[in-house]
Write a protein that binds this DNA or RNA. Structure first.
Lengths: 142, 142
DNA sequence: GTGGCTGCAAAACCTTTGCACACAA
DNA sequence: TTGTGTGCAAAGGTTTTGCAGCCAC
């Protein structure tokens, strides 16, 4: 983790290393608040430091960021295996989509539009198996 | 347009009809601000009315909403032909993606996760043909 | 007439920023 | 030492809400 920061010309600080650790351990992209709360017990770090660190590492290409349907920014490590989620509209639980089908779509799109594609974000919403079971009460709404 | 509102049990008001007209004429999803500005010269409508009307029609299923990478909510009519965009990271111009490849992906996903899929949102970012031409100055940043 | 719609202003929410101090290199 | 990182509090931008009055039905 230290190497990532050095390579980008960012200073190596405890705060940044902690944030990277949290992201590394997480199986899904996290919000600034998620990270703040995770570290709360362990050490003191202000909200603005979380945001500023995330943005610095985002600019440096160490992280990826996407805005989900809840209007919040979600951050994850920029490895070759980035993650997308599917989120239950009832219980709000999110699970990872275990594949990213965008590579081929991006190629088609580049040809059609002439754009050079640099990124994508997507999110699915649905009803998880559990909520489907208990969802008679929701069945009036399509 | 009137019929859409009636069918949903929403009252038919000038404001709502105006909003629907604007969305109908637009070739891309719009923000509340876009709609407000479009109508500004033509008539008075408060920002909260724009938001409340959009949300009422969203709940009624008349509209679709997605949050893009700029953290803004974009609204469009819920026809069978919904739209996705690709946005240039340099000049910020957005064009429509002329197809939605999600149907098949959703089927695979439903099988893999057990989720009943109710929606999706995605957005591509890239560099448009124009900016690629003028973009020597940007080439230092990957 | 009544419940839903509207305007206005204020609040909520997430994120960014100014400033003074602290720390990594 | 020097410039980058940090904490705190305040501000920013977008969206929501409380309340009083208005309008569609």
């Amino acid at each position: 983790m230290k190497g990532l920061l050095k390579k980008s010309g960012l200073k190596v600080t405890d705060n940044r290393l902690s944030i990277l650790e949290v992201l590394k351990k997480s199986s899904a992209p996290l919000t600034a608040e998620d990270i703040y709360k995770t570290l709360e017990n362990e050490k003191h770090m202000s909200f603005s430091t979380v945001y500023r660190s995330l943005n610095a590492m985002l600019d440096a290409g160490i992280l990826l960021m996407q805005v989900n349907q809840d209007s919040k920014q979600y951050f994850q490590l920029n490895t070759n295996e980035h993650k997308h989620i599917i989120k239950c509209i009832i219980c709000k639980e999110a699970v990872n989509v275990e594949f990213c089908p965008m590579k081929e779509i991006e190629e088609v799109l580049a040809k059609k539009t002439g754009y050079k594609i640099t990124g994508h974000s997507f999110e699915f919403t649905g009803i998880c198996p559990n909520c489907q079971k208990n969802s008679q009460k929701y069945s009036k709404k399509h």
